[in-house]
Amino acid sequence: MTTQTITRVRKSMNWRLIGAWALVAVALAVTILPFLWMLRTALSSNHSLASNSTNLLPADFSWGAFKRVFGMQSAEEAIAEGGSGANIDFWLYLRNSILFSTVTTAGQVFFSALAAYAFARLRWPGRDKVFALFLATMMIPPIFTALPNFLLIKNLGLLNTFAGLTLPFVFMSAFGIFFLRQFFMSMSREVEEAAMLDGAKHLRIFFQIVLPNAAAPMATLALLTFIGQWNEYFWPLLVGQEENVRVLTVGLSVFKSQSPQGAPDWSGLMAATIVAAVPVLILFIAFGKKVVNSIGFSGIK
């Protein structure tokens, strides 16, 4: 290979590297700019947003929106700063969101693990067909099942209760079964076979052998499920209309109500959205690498 050829190859590689970094920079900008705009709006005064719509810095810097989120402003102060003056019980909404997300996550992970073990380790007639049916349910939009679930919860008298909020989500999910089944299929059968020779039944093997070895993928599934449940909006809005069961995502609608000045509380809405996203961001930053590694190990591409 001549010197000129080597030089051309190096120049080509440099341009490719520059192009790759340029694409990464564009992707980062597209991802980060909406969050920066949310923060800018949250730190602005509602009265100055319209007149400074193109400015990237906060318009008339103010912490008032965050004070309204945490209920630290009176109704008169909130109205004076462009809020609706509606009562906001942030800590109640936060408690409800934590309870709803935690209960549904624990139920989904546990029951998905049981089902995944049955599909991966037990042999029974029609196993593969039933598993294919479970996977097919992933193609059904959740909006199609919302009405039947709502009617069922209504007929059971569970509207505006935590039981009504959690029941449709507390059992196994198709994604959870698929995710854990991939891991269970990759586990060695030698330890299980040795336990069977000692007289252990499937239930004992599941709790004493399989679950301890599946701690990492189950933690990953729990994190992914928790994030999804934390962001759930439509079902809690449909079932939990009363204040005592209202979750944080539904509580954000308070800031969309018209203020006496005739416009929504955009600053308060963005501040509340940021506060609601903080727990999920912390979890993802802390465990994001483990999630990626576990998904790759489980064979999901």
Results as ranks from 00 to 15, higher is better:
F169L: 10
G64L: 09
V69H: 03
G268D: 01
G83S: 03
G176L: 02
F61K: 11
L114I: 12
W91Y: 08
G228M: 06
S74T: 14
M196W: 09
T137L: 03
G71C: 06
I282H: 11
P279F: 03
K201W: 11
Y117A: 05
F61L: 14
A136S: 14
G19D: 05
F171A: 10
L165V: 11
I209V: 12
R40P: 08
T5Y: 00
S44E: 04
V69Y: 01
N149K: 07
F110G: 04
S186C: 00
L167M: 12
G240T: 04
I18Q: 07
N244E: 13
W230A: 03
N213K: 12
P264I: 11
I300F: 13
L28S: 12
R246H: 06
L36S: 07
A200F: 08
I98T: 06
F66Q: 05
Q258D: 14
I143L: 12
K290G: 12
S186W: 00
P148L: 12
F287E: 01
F179H: 02
L165N: 02
G176E: 01
P212W: 05
A65C: 11
S298H: 04
L36I: 13
I300P: 09
W21E: 14
R246A: 04
F119N: 05
R10Y: 09
N213A: 14
P141L: 07
L133K: 00
K301P: 07
R10E: 13
V247Q: 00
H202Y: 09
A120W: 03
L283S: 05
M38F: 09
R16T: 13
A22L: 11
G82N: 01
V69C: 04
L33T: 15
A86D: 01
A174W: 01
L28G: 10
M196Y: 10
F287M: 07
F183G: 03
A286G: 06
A42G: 06
L57I: 15
V24Q: 10
R204H: 13
A214M: 12
P168L: 04
A200V: 09
V24N: 07
R95Y: 00
D198S: 09
L135P: 07
S48T: 13
A263E: 13
R16I: 14
S45M: 08
A194E: 08
K201E: 14
M172T: 10
L238H: 04
E190D: 15
I143R: 08
T41E: 01
N213C: 12
M270I: 08
A200H: 05
G240R: 01
T249S: 12
S84F: 03
G71Q: 05
F131G: 02
M185T: 15
V69E: 02
